[in-house]
Design a protein around this nucleic acid. Sequence first.
DNA 1: CACTATTAAGTTGTGCACAACTAATTGGCT
DNA 2: AGCCAATTAGTTGTGCACAACTTAATAGTG
Lengths: 151, 151
Amino acid sequence: MTTPATDWLRLDRQICFSLNAASRAFGGVYRVLLRDLGLTYPQYLVMLVLWEHGELPVKQLGEHLRLDSGTLSPLLKRLEAAGLVRRERSASDERSVRVRATEEGAALRERALEVPRRIAAATGFGLEEIEDLRSRLDRLTSALDEAALTE
Amino acid sequence: MTTPATDWLRLDRQICFSLNAASRAFGGVYRVLLRDLGLTYPQYLVMLVLWEHGELPVKQLGEHLRLDSGTLSPLLKRLEAAGLVRRERSASDERSVRVRATEEGAALRERALEVPRRIAAATGFGLEEIEDLRSRLDRLTSALDEAALTE
DNA sequence: CACTATTAAGTTGTGCACAACTAATTGGCT
DNA sequence: AGCCAATTAGTTGTGCACAACTTAATAGTG
């Protein structure tokens, strides 16, 4: 009892589509929750990293977020224009630009505290179930990154 | 033993980030595989639906893919320019535009047949493990859509 | 020290996602 | 029939992702 080859092309068999759809569904929920904070979802992720690690160069920010300067440069420019972030050239290495939250940006953290709880509630998943899913996804990402290199 | 509230803001606790990262990691692998076919990943998804369902209106295409005309109209225009798809106004309802694969577009299916297998290999996951993950993600998407409505 | 390779950030161009809007058509209702 | 609400595509504008490139600074090597 084998599956016809063409069946593997069915949309509902594509794990990647489910992944993509889930990611965009999250986007919709975040969009509503973050509107009050004046942040988009990627901007929110940047603020999370800054809140957690303090000042750090664009390069390291990108490593945390899996994003390059092509995405981060304009995004950070918008965050700076919004007064949430400051960028300044590193004195020790003038190639590097260090990013940090302004006072206003730091203050935003308080208002962001309830976001994860509301997101968790929206998923309808239990905490350990979320954790389990997260670890599977991280393993998946590692495998895909690995494969991309040898492809 | 409770978790400090601020810990929930850690990037590595955000299920959504893992999801987003996995989705983008998939993007990288698909980009390589689809380059030969001359398709982007969203265009590939459109072709999957057309191969599976034959001719259908933009509206229904969007329902399958969870996309609106704002995304689909320009995407379909590019597919049409590439000669893979044709669009024509429905005679019975002139609001509707019916989309179908051209001969060239249909022929592309043969070359796409190996894509899912190569993707599955890249994940390093077994088939039942993929299936399990897929169903969890679909459940997650449903819950998030539900929550977005009542938010 | 001089020269080259590497690294960091930014820019440009393409494509996707989505909100908000417009234009055209259709359906329902009185 | 006449009118209004709903439906379907498309357009416009903003922001993100990423490849390919540029510019400037640093590190490494002979």
